[in-house]
Design a binder for these strands. Structure first.
Length: 468
RNA sequence: GGCGACGUUGCCAAGUGGUUAAGGCAGGGGUCUGCAAAACCCCUAUUCGGCGGUCCGAAUCCGCCCGUCGCCUCCA
């Protein structure tokens, strides 16, 4: 399988380190391990659907690797101390930990609702201070960092590779307009590893005085601690390429002296709302909770997966509604009760399977993979209508939709207080229909439709549901 | 200014040198139904921002132009 590596700027054959070191060429190691690190959140507000896009993407990466026979070790950090968190906690007048705990819990509730697999390890920055201090200390000892007025900075001029991920060089960066020459910095691009705390800020003791970690160091410390010196996949949004991931490489490779820190860098394109990307700072966001109040998790996943993950995606209500309709079609097939007896297997199951795999093998071509599944669904419906047994193709469909993390469960309708009254009207209407009083029956149906209650007469009775 | 992307049917969105340009939604036709709805089936771009070029052949490669977006220490 091929994956696009931001570092090389091209698609590369994916080989896990575990396969390489064990000399495995074709399946000698039964379940080679893939070490995967995904950048997590800064918990001080509810996550928005741009986050959903990113985590759905890497959830599918993980599910597909597992489908292909890898054993994935998935680590995702929670950066629970930084400027925005401190500012928000102060504004609300609550302890830092109370704020971060609340939004971490809510974040994972959102992830669960989206059917995103939990990472195996979820380290928090504030619980990894000793490792962070250790890494910082070594970087100073090796000459890659220097303390200054209680802060510690990384010395970018000492790292000849600096800029290799984001394809920049120090000169062009310095030529940029937004660089501030921090007090005590040797070079304007030097970035902070350890920040001296100001009065009233949370702090930890360190050899350089009380302070807290800089933004990038926690990811280096955590991935070293939990995954080792070289990891296979590091994922995140495209907006993290610079400075975050660039700085992680600088820190990690300087610390270990080993290259590469990450074998494959994967970055998802950003979600746009209108003309701009969706982000906390622009305030143009829709939270995952808001989206899930109106749409199913499957619809959100289909919306995300019907595009190529590296390319920006534009959010619209219409697109999400279209995805919901598509989800309904797949659900319909998943709920089918096969009744046919004919076994004239007209469906090329291995063909669909290999088309799906070929699409996914090409840098997680979920759009193509989904298209294959819609084709399969159509075939299943056709054969089912013809009276053929579709048990096997149905199993293939649910197996493959599962790789994309779709549940295809029927949508849950929120309970309505008015339900007993609606039931009463519906049964009255049934009586009228039996008596062939169709004008009266249709009148009730029309009125209910106006009130947002949809009526469907099916062979097994009348069902109704509230339109969301 | 530097770096990186994108522009495909009414909408969203795949495809990146060669038979009929995926798929979803919308739209049209049909099956089912008392009628609807839902569901299902079938159909729906001679054309890929514009102009040149390379090639037997380009949406796909090259050049220029137009338009849009992202990053350049808040960010998935």
């Amino acid at each position: 399988m091929k994956v696009f590596n931001t570092l090389s700027g091209q698609k590369e054959e994916f080989i896990a380190q575990d396969e390489e070191t064990s000399g495995n060429v074709c399946g000698v190691v039964p379940y080679p391990e893939v070490k995967m690190y995904v950048c997590g959140i800064n918990p001080y507000a509810d996550s928005h659907i741009g986050h959903a896009l990113s985590y759905i993407t890497f959830d599918v990466v993980r599910r597909y690797l597992e489908f292909r026979g890898y054993k994935v070790k998935h680590v995702e950090n929670v950066t629970d101390v930084e400027d925005n968190i401190i500012a928000t906690a102060n504004r609300l007048g609550i302890p830092l930990r109370e704020l971060t705990e609340k939004y971490t819990v809510r974040y994972f509730e959102d992830m669960d609702a989206l059917n995103i697999l939990r990472p195996h390890i979820i380290p928090r920055a504030t619980e990894e201070i000793p490792k962070i201090i250790e890494v910082t200390k070594v970087l100073i000892d090796k000459g890659y960092a220097y303390p200054s007025r209680g802060d510690v900075y990384f010395r970018v001029t000492k790292d000849p590779d600096y800029g290799k991920l984001s394809k920049r060089n120090l000169e062009s960066m310095v030529a940029g307009i937004r660089i501030e020459l921090g007090e005590g910095k040797e070079h304007p691009m030097d970035f902070v590893l350890w920040k001296a705390s100001k009065p009233g800020e949370p702090s930890w003791d360190s050899p350089w005085g009380p302070g807290r970690p800089g933004w990038h160091i926690e990811c280096t410390a955590m991935s070293l601690k939990y995954l080792g010196e070289t990891i296979d996949i590091h994922g995140g949004g495209q907006d993290l390429v610079f400075p975050h991931h660039e700085n992680e490489i600088a820190q990690s490779e300087s610390f270990t002296g080993k290259k590469p820190f990450v074998r494959y860098w994967l970055h998802n394109g950003l979600l746009r709302l209108g003309e701009n990307k969706m982000s906390k700072s622009l305030g143009n966001l829709i939270t995952i909770r808001e989206a899930l109040a109106k749409h199913s998790a499957d619809a959100l996943r289909i919306f995300v997966l019907s595009s190529y993950y590296r390319v920006p995606l534009t959010f619209t209500e219409e697109a999400l509604e279209a995805a919901e309709k598509g989800a309904d079609r797949l659900r319909q097939v998943a709920q089918l009760k096969p009744h046919g007896e004919k076994t004239t297997g007209q469906i090329d199951i291995p063909g669909y399977h290999s088309k799906f795999v070929a699409a996914m093998d090409d840098d997680f071509g979920t759009a193509q993979a989904l298209a294959t599944l819609f084709d399969l669904a159509r075939d299943i419906n056709r054969l089912n209508d013809e009276g053929c047994d579709v048990t096997q193709p149905k199993l293939t469909l649910t197996e493959l939709t599962g790789v994309l993390g779709l549940t295809l469960k029927p949508r849950e309708e929120p309970p309505l207080e008015s339900a007993p009254f609606i039931e009463l009207l519906v049964s009255t209407r049934q009586e009228l229909r039996k008596a062939k009083q169709f004008q009266l029956a249709d009148g009730i149906r029309n009125k209910l439709t106006e009130l947002g209650i949809g009526i469907e007469d099916t062979p097994s009775g009348t069902v109704w549901k509230a339109k969301r």
